[in-house]
């Protein structure tokens, strides 16, 4: 029936039960993945009394922006969080991309002395790790990163996985390209910047996406190495507000806190903050997700 070459695999276009089942199943799974996002959006607008009476629903009976107002009364920490996260994401991603791609390019060069050793040097960090405790001691007592912005940037800057991904891509560029540029008198860094990087846009886009996502979503480095609340990244702020609310709920015998809790819709504040911290990802998602699929494919092929 369908003899078009592009449709060669999509034989038998007629509808059968199996196909209907597939459409329903995937549709339901897709909705399930979307549902919590919708719930949190509507939850952030649900008034406290209604949340207690009916729980959070997809379409609340009445709407309020009290949760967002409560957040902006305390707005300084949110604005600070945004500043920290945006700075860390932009600077961290840019530097990380440069460092990883330079290393990936160097170990893809046949003239590099000790290439095998350096490949192993990178690989071994994927196989064995010293663990959390020695890592913590190195960061705090030896490098003195605690409470500095570097704590949020440096520890996750180099990724063995990304170096290999980039190396494999650079290796697929014909070696003659490099040799002829050398003969023309170009230096290595110049060749890397003006020949190899422009040729590698797809893999660079993928690595950029994953690195930026990692920095944006990171709360772990903050949890371990940041005590200064003014420098909390957004996700850590979100985590802390959760535990503070839990803390407030356990202390409801205190009349002053009781009064506070009456004006602030506890779960609603969390949800509003989820929207504020995850919003940028959700807004960019439609544009980013095609790189994402490509990225998984590149990563799946080989490390």
């Amino acid at each position: 029936m369908s003899s078009l070459p592009t449709q060669a695999r999509r034989h038998r276009v007629h509808v059968d039960g199996w196909r209907i089942f597939a459409a329903i199943f995937t549709g339901l799974f897709g909705l399930l993945c979307l549902y919590p996002f919708l719930l949190v959006i509507s939850g952030s607008f649900t008034p406290k009394e209604e949340a207690i009476r009916n729980g959070f629903r997809l379409i609340p009976g009445s709407w309020t922006t009290a949760a967002y107002q409560a957040l902006f009364i305390n707005g300084r920490s949110i604005v600070n969080g945004y500043k920290v996260t945006v700075f860390v994401t932009v600077v961290g991603t840019a530097v990380s991309l440069l460092v990883n791609s330079m290393m990936g390019w160097v170990v893809s060069r046949k003239v590099m002395p000790g290439r095998k050793f350096w490949n192993f040097y990178i690989l071994f960090t994927m196989l064995f790790s010293g663990g959390m405790v020695p890592w913590y001691i190195v960061c705090v007592n030896i490098l003195h990163l605690k409470n500095t912005i570097f704590a949020l940037l440096l520890p996750s800057m180099v990724s063995a996985w990304n170096i290999f991904l980039l190396r494999n891509y650079f290796s697929s560029v014909p070696e003659e390209m490099y040799e002829s540029a050398r003969i023309d008198g170009a230096q290595d860094f110049r060749i890397f910047i003006s020949i190899y990087l422009p040729l590698s846009k797809p893999v660079l886009a993928t690595v950029t996406l994953f690195t930026a996502l990692g920095y944006w979503n990171d709360w772990w480095l903050g949890l371990m190495l940041m005590d200064n609340a003014d420098m909390y990244p957004l996700q850590l702020l979100l985590r802390n507000i959760i535990s503070n609310i839990q803390f407030l709920q356990t202390m409801e015998s205190n009349p002053q806190i009781q009064q506070m809790m009456a004006t602030i819709p506890g779960d609603g504040v969390k949800m509003a903050l989820v929207i504020l911290t995850t919003g940028p990802i959700l807004l960019l998602y439609p544009f980013l997700q095609r790189y994402f699929v490509k990225g998984i494919m590149v990563g799946a092929v080989k490390g």
Partner: peptide, 20 residues
């Protein structure tokens, strides 16, 4: 060009390994 990655891997991957 290789030095930044080598140094960072040494600091955050190899030093903790010795630290075990």
């Amino acid at each position: 060009m290789a030095i930044p990655a080598i140094v960072l891997l040494f600091l955050f991957a190899y030093m903790p390994m010795f630290g075990t």
